[in-house]
Each structure stands twice: as C-alpha cells, then as structure tokens.
C-alpha cells in the first residue's frame, strides 16, 4: 500500500527529486568528433585540446560519479571513500517484493556496475522480471505491489518518499518483452519522450534527437525515408529497435530490457544483441532473458534466480541463487542449482 500511495502522490513530487544530475552524455560524441572534423582551429591550441580530451575519454558514468562525489564531498566525504573502485549503479539490499499476499521475491542482495550488461536468468516465476520492474519503479503501476528493503540507484534510495517515480523512469529506460510502439508515426514514437519531458518540443533540436536515437538503435538507415509512416507497419525486430530508440531518446543512464528478443526471430535477435554490445559503452544495461545462450553471449554479469518452494505450505518464492561474472556462472558455478540450470538439467 505504501508504494501505491507514493505513486498517487507522484505529481506533487515531480520537482523534488534528490537524484544527482548526470552530465548530458550527448555532448560526448559531438565533442569527440569535433577535433577530427571541423575543429582544425582548435588544434592550434594543443595544450587545451589534450586537457579537454582526457576527461572525455572516460565513460559518462565516471564523470557522473565524479560530479556526485564532488557534490556530496562536503557533507559525506568518508562514505564515498569506502568504495573507490566500483561504479555502482544499483545496490540492492535485502529486497523483498510482494504482490498482495504473494511473496514474489525474497532477500535479494545485488550490485550492478556501470557500463556493464547484467543478465537475469532463471525459470518462469522466479521474480527476475519483478526485480527489473523495481529498478525503474514500474511496479508502482501494480496497485497490490509493495517492497521491503532497499534499492539504491547512484546512492539514492529509489523508494524514498522524496523520489518521483516519473523522474526515475526518465533516467532509467525500459524495453518490454513485446514490442510496444505507439500507434503513431515512427518519428512521433521516438519524439514522444523528448516532447513530454521537455527535452525538445519541435524543430531541428527534436529532429536531431530523433535521428541520433534511431541511429544508436541501428534503425535509422532502414526508416529514414519513411519517418512519418506508422510504426505499426514495421517488422517485429524493427519495432523492438524502435522501442529501444524511444527509450534512449530521453537520455537515460540505464536501459532495462525485459526479454527483448522473446518475440523476435533469430536474425532480429542477433541485431538486438549486437546493438546491446554497442549501447553498453553509453548505458548500463540490465536484461532479463529466458535464453541462456543469449545471457552467455551478451552479458558481463549474470544473476541466476530460482523458485523456492516451501515444503509445508507449498508457497513459491523467487530467490537470487547466484550472482557473478557470466563466464563463472556458466563454467564454474558455485551453486548446484545454478549448475543444473545452466547445463540444462532443470528449467
């Protein structure tokens, strides 16, 4: 009930979020491209160029963390120093999720790092989608859902009463299982986010965002001549890439993907997987997948979830069994349940 009421109140809180601002990563590629092409005059002042290019070579996240640290240094310098090496995007601490009386996910502890692809695998009903939907507070839309425990996003408690779910979703994009383009033109689909968030309402600025997002989603060349055609006329794979373009058009930090390839054929799946590897440079990606080969192919980290059946009551609960580097999960899993699952003996 508490999450539901938070959602009810979200409109009031829209302007009162406490998440630190990440730098606009859109400046990054432009700045990087500039010296190579038009910035010949800039090369005449070499010292500055070198100084400038060094921070640009860092990932957007590192820049963001630096800024975050700078902002918080004055009051909480010590806390930041405890974890100097890791760039944590998510820190999940003893998380429990319920749908009404149903205990969907139990005691989950998990840390997700920036610019990595983290895969959630496991049998149906193990709570992997539930956890993913907690990461951008999509579960707020389900009235009976409630959570206990803590999810920290860049050090901020996502479910704090001061945090607006709407703002959270602007920073944490989501791609759904079934391609769900809006019944509008291809252009309007991508422009929807920038328009409502006020990033760009119309004109060249909006055109640029749409083009760049479609390019990042590896769709632009296929649709550039028919941007005003309905998105419903695209193939399933194109629709899903359009949904990815729609998600990245609002400059999120994180992309959550809920079985993005389950409705697609192998060719389209390969395209999305290649795309994920490219997007990983700019975004932190969390993907839920039923396809273990996919997890092995694309992810850096893998979390294996399973269903725990309580013997007396026959109640089923999702649990996180094992979390680690993907190659370790698939080659030398520590838990026998993981081993059984990844070798195909169960699930």
């Amino acid at each position: 009930m508490s999450t539901a009421s938070t959602f009810q109140d979200q409109s009031k809180l829209e302007n009162s979020i406490a998440i630190p601002e990440m730098p606009d990563r859109e400046t990054e590629p432009t700045a990087a491209a500039a010296p190579a092409t038009v910035a010949a005059p800039a090369a005449t002042t070499p010292t500055h160029a070198v100084e400038l290019s060094t921070p640009q070579s860092h990932s957007a996240f590192e820049a963001g963390t630096a800024q975050l640290e700078a902002e918080t240094a004055s009051d909480e310098a010590l806390e930041q120093d405890e974890v100097p090496a890791k760039n944590l995007v998510y820190k999940v601490n003893d998380l429990n999720v319920y749908y009404g009386d149903y205990h969907a996910l139990r005691n989950v502890d998990l840390e997700i790092e920036a610019n990595e692809i983290t895969a959630f695998i496991g049998p149906s009903g193990c709570g992997k989608t539930t956890l993913l939907r907690c990461f951008n507070r999509m579960n707020d839309l389900i009235p009976t859902a409630r959570i206990e425990g803590m999810i920290e996003y860049l050090g901020v408690n996502l479910y704090d009463s001061q945090v607006s779910a709407v703002e959270v979703r602007r920073r944490i994009g989501m791609v759904f299982q079934k391609p769900n383009p809006f019944p509008k033109s291809i252009f309007d689909n991508v422009a929807y986010g920038p328009r409502i968030t006020g990033l760009a309402k119309r004109g060249q600025a909006l055109n640029d965002i749409v083009e760049r997002s479609l390019q990042k989603a590896a769709l632009f060349d296929e649709v550039k001549d028919r941007l005003n055609n309905s998105a419903m006329g695209l193939s399933g794979g194109q629709q899903q890439r359009l949904c990815i373009a729609r998600a990245i058009a609002v400059n999120p930090d994180v992309l959550l993907m809920d079985e993005p390839c389950s409705a697609l054929d192998p060719v389209a799946t390969t395209r999305i997987e290649d795309l994920m590897n490219e997007l990983k440079q700019d975004y932190t990606i969390v993907i839920v997948t039923h396809n273990m080969q996919q997890a092995a192919r694309v992810s850096d980290m893998t979390a294996f979830f399973s269903v725990d059946v309580a013997s007396e009551t026959d109640t089923r609960t999702g649990i996180l069994v094992e979390y680690g580097k993907t190659e370790e999960i698939f080659s030398t899993p520590k838990d026998t349940r993981t081993e059984h699952y990844v070798t195909g003996r169960f699930g």
């Binding site: 409109s11 602007r170 759904f176 809006f182 409502i196």
Partner: peptide, 15 residues
C-alpha cells in the same frame, strides 16, 4: 503495453 511504454519514458499519469 501502450501505457507501460508511455510510463517507461517518464510520462506522468496525465500525459
């Protein structure tokens, strides 16, 4: 799916 897509890019309920 349509509503989730909209909420997913940060639309408010009204939007």
């Amino acid at each position: 799916g349509l509503k989730e897509g909209s909420y997913g890019v940060g639309a408010t309920r009204w939007e």
